[in-house]
Amino acid sequence: MDTAIDLQNVSKAFGKFKAVDDLSFRVPKGVIFGLLGPNGAGKTTTIRMIMNITAPDSGAISVLGHAMDRETQNRIGYLPEERGLYRKMKVIEHLYFLAAIKEVDRPTARKRIDNWLDRMELRPWLNKKVDELSKGMQQKVQFIATIVHDPEILILDEVFSGLDPINTALVKEYLIDFRSKGKTIVFSTHVLEQAEKLCDQICLVSKSKKILDGELKALKRHFSKGLIHLSIAASEKEVTALPGVVSCQPLNGVFIVKLAADVDRRQFLRQTLDRYDVAAFSDREPELEEIYLSAVQAAGLEETRIIE
């Protein structure tokens, strides 16, 4: 897979405070990549360095195969965490302006904006001043502004913060739509549930350091620790009594079962099916929160609660 963004041993300090410490990760093209971690972990600084807004003290960053330059900047859609709009500008003028500084001319911008207006239900607001728009409407304008130049990579810092549930669902839908067009999306969030269903790849950071990164599915498998979700017409006692079962915990009507290391799962399932009615049998996928906590522990860092 081609590389969209590559960070090698990137560090950045502000005075004595190390904001990012020896961070490396690779974002392949065509994926949704989550940069995850608690507030103050260095996500925004990392994103700003990718955008060439601040420069790293050491390390190298390449975007679309080379160091970020003006031409590359025009191929990226960036939505910073601190995002706002000129309050007194008309919505359409504002979109034209943000397109113009990406070197998109007005007719082209107009065509692209038109495509999004109905989808976002923004058309009646086009000639209104930004001031007169609700917060949710302004967020839609910001989102259109981020994609008006048809970028290859979207970089979104805390994209879901401040979005209502409807807009959150909409944005998730757009992001998946974007990926299906072969575009790359990098987004940061401190709310892990938001990344859970969306990300193909993740990088977890805490206290300026990377804890782990990689493909989310592989990570989940790795952190499943041989645990199995079992939905079965049997009691906890009966399940524990099954051959090969080390432990069994009921959770919301299913059992989380740990099998002995030498047990063949297919054989275990066959034997169980002979005795009981099994509705579901699957690898238990650990939630991101759980992965994060065990990774933090493994990294020897003290535990940082990720949910405030």
Partner: peptide, 16 residues
Amino acid sequence: IDEKSNRIVEVIIASV
């Protein structure tokens, strides 16, 4: 100062 207090400046700095 307006651009800063409007929080628009970072969006612009990403292009200009």
